[in-house]
Amino acid sequence: MGLRRGKRRDAGGTDPARGAAAVELHGVRRQYGRGRSAVHALRGIDLVLPHGSFTAVMGPSGSGKSTFLQCAAGLDRPTAGSVRLGGTELTGLKENELTVLRRTRLGFVFQAFNLLPSLTVEENVLLPMRLAGERPDRRRAADVLGRVGLGDKGGRRPAELSGGQQQRVALARALVTRPDVVFADEPTGALDSTTAGEVLALLRSAVDSLGATVVMVTHDPVAAAWADRVLFLADGAIADRVEGADPARIADRMRSLTAPRTLAGAAL
């Protein structure tokens, strides 16, 4: 049994527009505070990402990566601008509508795994379906666990698994609802290089085999090289982007973003 991407409905009960981009941000700004102490985390982001694509987001500390991910995923509301996911405008949705959308149409993978220790692997994977009010589909859980190489671990507890295996469970949980977009925040940050490569290969496979759309924040050029494109943020804006780049080229672009800041700090 394979994961098939079925027809979806938005938070308002209508089908998303056919052919709509997976992620769209237009003029997105996010400001914290006011006056002279205001922090401008995002300064007018314009971005369109197609379905079935893998995008990595990189940038120096404080560049706006986390805020970008939170606004794109409907976890935070922008101060200005428009965010659309699969043709659904998020900006005007009520909080309960955003919650429904996140539970039914988005998947999340975090650095810390965020598995519930009291639940089995299978129960952790099925949790998004339960939260969305759907009937848990054990066959679908078995399918996604098989895809991430954990078909025989459904009855285990997270504490019985290695870190890499726990992140595979988190990935299976993110995929079980057949989401429009999977948002991954430093998904390999807590893993060794070999295990990280295995998890990244699974994310790549989700895009290539299942048609998933993945948006991944990372600090690692090796991880970013698995993506179709890399966006570089600096001071809350998109400073550069590359496609099909290897780790060396990505690392060079990162150095070009951080070097001016380092020199300016030294001058002070």
Rank of each mutant, 00 (worst) to 15 (best):
E95R: 05
L98C: 06
T99G: 02
V100K: 02
L101H: 12
R102S: 07
G107E: 07
G107A: 08
Q111K: 04
Q111T: 04
A112N: 11
L115F: 08
S118G: 01
S118C: 02
E122V: 15
E122K: 14
E123V: 10
L126Q: 09
L126V: 07
L127T: 03
R130Q: 15
L131W: 07
A132D: 10
R135W: 06
R135L: 09
D137W: 13
D137E: 14
R138M: 03
R138V: 11
R138S: 14
R139P: 00
R140K: 15
A141K: 13
A142D: 15
V144Y: 11
L145V: 02
L145G: 01
G146Q: 12
R147Q: 14
G149K: 09
L150E: 04
G151A: 10
K153W: 04
G154Q: 02
R156Q: 12
R156C: 14
P158F: 05
A159L: 00
E160P: 00
L161D: 02
Q165A: 07
Q166P: 00
R168D: 06
R168L: 09
V169D: 11
L171K: 03
L171F: 08
R173E: 12
R173S: 13
L175I: 12
L175F: 12
P179Y: 12
D180P: 00
D180Y: 00
F183H: 05
F183I: 07
A184L: 09
D185C: 13
